[in-house]
Design a protein around this nucleic acid. Sequence first.
RNA 1: GCCGAUUUAGCUUAGCUGGUGGAGCGUGGGACUGUUAAUCCCAAGGUCGAGGGUUCGAACCCCUCAAUCGGCGCCA
Length: 477
Amino acid sequence: MPNSHRLKPISECTCKVTKGDIELEKVTPPTGANMVKTIWIGDVQSGKYDDQEVELKGWVKRARGNNNIRFVVLRDSTGTIQCVVKKDTIGEELFAEVKNVLIETSVIIHGKVNADERADGGHELVASSFEIIGAVNPEKPFPITESAMAAADGGETEFLLDNRHLYLRTSRMTTMLQIRSSVFGAIHSYFRDLDFVEYQAPNFVAGAVEGGSTLFEVPYFGRTAYLTQSWQLYAEAAMPALERLYTIAPSFRAEKSRTRRHLTEFWHAEMEVAWASNQEIMTHGEGVVRRVASTLLDERSSELEGLGRDLDLVARYADNPYPRMRYDEAVETLQAMNVDIEWGQDLDYSKEKILTQDFDVPHFLTHYPKIAKPFYHRVDPDDDNYVLCHDLLAPEGYGEIIGGGERTWSEEEILARLKEEGTPTEAYQFYIDTRSYGGVPHGGFGLGVDRVCAWLTGADHIREVIPFPRDSRRVTP
RNA sequence: GCCGAUUUAGCUUAGCUGGUGGAGCGUGGGACUGUUAAUCCCAAGGUCGAGGGUUCGAACCCCUCAAUCGGCGCCA
């Protein structure tokens, strides 16, 4: 599969170091080691080097052939190409080496680029030299075989999870990581385009954002600290300084959930805005998700197609507005469908799933009952049974991808809400204190980046979109 | 925490009502002048997750344990 991205040659990446008008130093590519790579397989497959002599550096993906001609499929980060090695051209000694080359051997191959329909991708390299750089231990050949991949059928087996460090090299995982990078980039550019400031919160914290049972305890010089579940409380402290802020950072939750939607360490894109209403926050949520979808169409359409993803679906998510529905309407809808639910219950995954069946784009659920949500959600001034919050539910059964809303911002209200819940206030003292000095209405949301990746790629499991997934039973490799 | 499953070669698996564990991939050797997950021939590789029990006999039946997978609750 050709890659829609090319790597720039290093000469285009270097920058000039200047002081005033005087150019102090021109950074040049390192030379001498003969390890500078200037030509990428993706470019060769695009026809840029037809009939030219080139040097390709990469890894052997597969090899086949006979005693006189070998076909070595070479892989790099931009694609694959067939290299034709003939005994006549290259000599018996080298040919014997090529014949014995094992999968994932790293090599440098010189040769002439030949446009040939017999080769996958339309181009091949007719080799004039073949140099092994890093050999593969024949006692321990590359363990990921075709049968392992076929068995995984695009997903994962325990074996592939155990060999994740090697599985990353396969075309499917490479594609996932490239798409993931574009998702992160799209989120950054959405917020930066709107003058949000990227802001970092600590990962060691003293208190919980959600319920206390989902915290990871960490020994901390004789005390107990916790890994953060969310950037939010620390973002709210900086809200009066920055007014619009965001982050993409890991969050940690010690949930024993074993589902296709959960990780114990996940990447959390969070934002906080001063002077903002629930409606405005939702507009940003919709905006960032649609930006991610449109960026993937721009940057990664061939990769998505390579994964078998229907681009029309992704385009639908990029181009259409996301409907908003109150919790009460959702409950009524479910009750009309004879689903067993009572007012005041949080909507669990099975109920979300039933709701999302009726939508072909993501949709928001707003105004949950106060009793279903924690203290930091702002009570609706129009009806104190509800809070001004929202969840964004992805279609196709992928579930919640955003949770957010307005925050309880007056000191009086937040103390009342904490008392009502019976939540101890010690760990939140700094948070409460911020309310004593010019509190303003504000809000924000958290977006599960991995969940968005899983949904937009159509992955069967959230593990497929993160390089080294962490769940309740796996911290290795 | 709860419910349901799985565990046979490096990997993926077949193995019927209990009667000497087969194959594909990978690896090693051989054949083949253009292959497309190349093909063909040969070979090595297994205390059937661990322990105990029933039985003349256990991969298969029973018990205990372990590891793993899927789902629920909760969440992103």
